[in-house]
Each structure stands twice: as C-alpha cells, then as structure tokens.
Design a protein around this nucleic acid. Structure first.
Lengths: 144, 144
DNA sequence: AGGGAAGTGTTATATAATAACATAATGACT
DNA sequence: AGTCATTATGTTATTATATAACACTTCCCT
C-alpha cells in the first residue's frame, strides 16, 4: 500500500469511527510515514517546525495521541516512540518486533498466540483491556 | 517470602552471577520493596533523600538499572516504573499485568504461551532477545 | 604499597510529556 | 445568516524522566 492510498484509507477509517483526520493530523501522519520504523515525538516536532516555522510539543502530542486512539499508530513505550500500524482495518492485536541492530520495526499479527495468552491471564482472573507487547532482538536480515 | 529472606536470596543471586548487592543497591531494593506495585525512579529518589539527606538521579537510576540487569526488578516501560520480580531464580519470562483501577501489579509466568509466541516470531525470522510484555486491565478483585 | 576496576558522588543537561489557558474553526439549530 | 456549543489548535510554561561527564572513593588483586 502506497502512502496516498494509506492516507485515503486512514481518512475513511476515521470517518467510520465518527471523527476526522484533519489537515494537521494528516500532516503529522504523513511525517511519521516518512520514517521506516519507530519515530520519536520530538523528531516529528522538528520536522513540523522545519515545514511550518513554529510548532510546540502539545501540537504534536495531541495529533499522535489521536492517531494512536484511532489505531493508525502504535505507541512503543519501550522506545518512547510511535510506529505506523499497517493493518488498522482488522481489529488487530499486534506484537511489535524491534531489531536492535538496524532499528527496523515489524508488527506481526499475534492472534495465534493471543488465545494462549488469554488462557493464562484468565486463569488468574485478570480481564485484559490493552496490550503492550514488544520484543527486541535481531531481525531476519541482521542475524542471517 | 518475607523481605529479609528475599534480600538474602537476592544477595546470593548476585554473588552467583559474579557481582555484588552493595549497601546502596540493597537499600534501593528495600525501598522498592516497600511498595506494592510499580514504583517510579523519582519516588525512590525522594525516599532516599528523606533517609540520607541528599541523593541525585544517577544514584537511583544506576542502582535500579543494576537490579533490572540482575533480574531482581522489571522495568515497566509503559508506566515508566519498576516492579519487584518475585521469582528471579528461575529463568523467568514474565508477563506483567497492571490493574487500571487499583494499580496493583501481578507478574505471571508466561512460559505456557511463550512457545506459541516463539513459533510466530520465528516464522518471520526474528530472533528474540528481550521481552517487554505488559497487559493493562482489571484484576480479579476489581472486576468482580 | 601500587594500580586497575568497580562503585558512588556531583553538577549539569538532555529528552519526554503535560497543564492550563487562549483562540479559532466547525457544525447544528433556529 | 446568526448564535451557540463542541472540537480542534495555538501558546506559554512547567513537570517528569533519564543520562552525560567528570571527580572521587573503595575494593581487591598481585
């Protein structure tokens, strides 16, 4: 999926969810898309400043938070960063793989093992709501 | 396991691994043990300052990092905090459950589903090294 | 005792995130 | 079109989190 169709799909996705991908939000999503893997909020902020002159942290954080809320981005807490979600359509439950060497980020669908996970958590009476699953290691290219 | 025997075991654990649980590190571990769930570095710092007069962030962070490295604590990135690992002996692979309501943290052994997880990651050629698995939701008591 | 390694102290600063309030744009309704 | 509530954005300041860099000490080995 190229960037233009991704953005169009993202826009539709927001509409379906009853909110809007405004110009600013779209712009910030585009800035994130420029990167391959994880992006930091302040990188995006710097990019935005380069393009618009001024911009303050809340501008960026608000947009990023919105995009996360809509499932268009994932927050990668372990790295204080954000990454594009490539399959926001499906009610995805992703597992994020971060390569320590090249920094690349891969998001894989984890539905296979989420069943097993649910069993384990339910066994202790825990009702899961949000997930934050991340692995670091070496990607295919880097450990080959 | 009470605190005294935990500390003794922790000390042994470090020795076996060829390093030392110094007075400072032990002290900071004790401070973390005072809390039920997740503790922030600056909380520990404040506690330390209350007891010793002065203390600076690096003092705390270095000790916390050491304790994480030895497996005595886990870093909970999603909350910028640290939590005691209750089973540092076994080569544990934990899954951390954080209750949104009461703030309690539970660490469960996830070896059951790590097999499934390994299958999934290996399928894409990723060689995992470190894990960062966290779920938020409601604990048994809070959703009952 | 000498000397390297590990640990700790100290100061300053970098990085990440949010609070609080002001202003502007949007859209629903009359 | 006009008014009004809602949502979005701008702006300033501050809080929270974490690390760099260098000095000093302690420990242990020979």
């Amino acid at each position: 999926m190229n960037k233009q169709s991704y953005l169009a799909a993202a826009e539709q996705h927001c509409l379906h969810r009853g909110c809007k991908l405004t110009a600013l939000r779209r712009h910030i999503l585009e800035l994130v898309l420029e990167y391959d893997g994880v992006v930091k909020a302040y990188q995006v902020l710097a990019d935005l400043q380069r393009e618009r002159g001024v911009a303050a942290p809340p501008t960026v954080y608000r947009a990023l938070d919105f995009l996360v809320e809509q499932g268009l981005l994932h927050k990668v807490d372990a790295l204080n960063g954000f990454v594009v979600c490539s399959h926001f359509e499906c009610n995805h439950h992703g597992l994020i793989l971060v390569c320590e060497q090249c920094g690349r980020v891969e998001e894989i669908d984890a539905s296979q093992f989420l069943g097993a996970l649910k069993e384990v958590t339910e066994a202790v009476g825990f009702e899961s709501r949000e997930q934050n699953l991340l692995l670091t290691g070496l990607c295919k290219a880097c450990h080959a």
